[in-house]
Amino acid sequence: MLTRFENRPHALDVIGVSVAFGEVCVIDNVSFHVDVGSTLAIVGRNGSGKTVLLKALIGAVRASGTIRWAPETRIGYVPQKLDIQRDLPLTGRDFLNAKADVARAPATDAQRVAGLVNLSQSIVDQPIGTLSGGQFQRLLLAFALVGTPSVLLFDEPTAGVDEPEEKSVYALIHQLQQNEGLSVLVISHDMTQVQASADHILFLSHHGSYFGKTADMLNSERLQELHGPTVAHLRE
């Protein structure tokens, strides 16, 4: 039986990618792909190399192996919580306009994306250092959406935000994916969200990496042996 993404082209192919810092191998020979319009969840314990992998995908970290984005891919990246100076004289509008300028998007794009992520104009006009955790995460999401990306990369998009806001951010991501047909790569510790939204899972650990469809990954005996608690949580 074919799943809904079986015949879709790939937005991303990663083949035998490794990352080492000096003598320390952080990621060893990882391979996976992302279908156009699908969601890949990257899971694993702290220190398993999830963030390093995303940074390798955006070219911020040197990696060996093959990382092949589909032609004309436009990437939007939402990093883990950023430390911003509180007194930085930059408003959300300055920040979004700067991205629109660099992405050669229309000047009205800043307003459009602010609306997409439900950020009011008064919040957009505040200095970014004064925004709450949830507001800032929405601003980062809006920043990623400027220039109409085809792929969104999220590194724990709800780190540092409270539970209601967390649900709201995930609902927003899901809605954007449905409406804009985006491919999504998301690092998450929230297994409920992973199970609900991911089409594929990439499991990273010091013992190796495992990639497959969400349902298959949940039933993997090998994974249960190695990562019992996490996989058990997923199965629940």
Partner: peptide, 10 residues
């Protein structure tokens, strides 16, 4: 704001 935001922005 962040070099990590700058790279994916091209």
């Amino acid at each position: 704001v962040s070099p990590d935001l700058a790279r994916p922005a091209g």
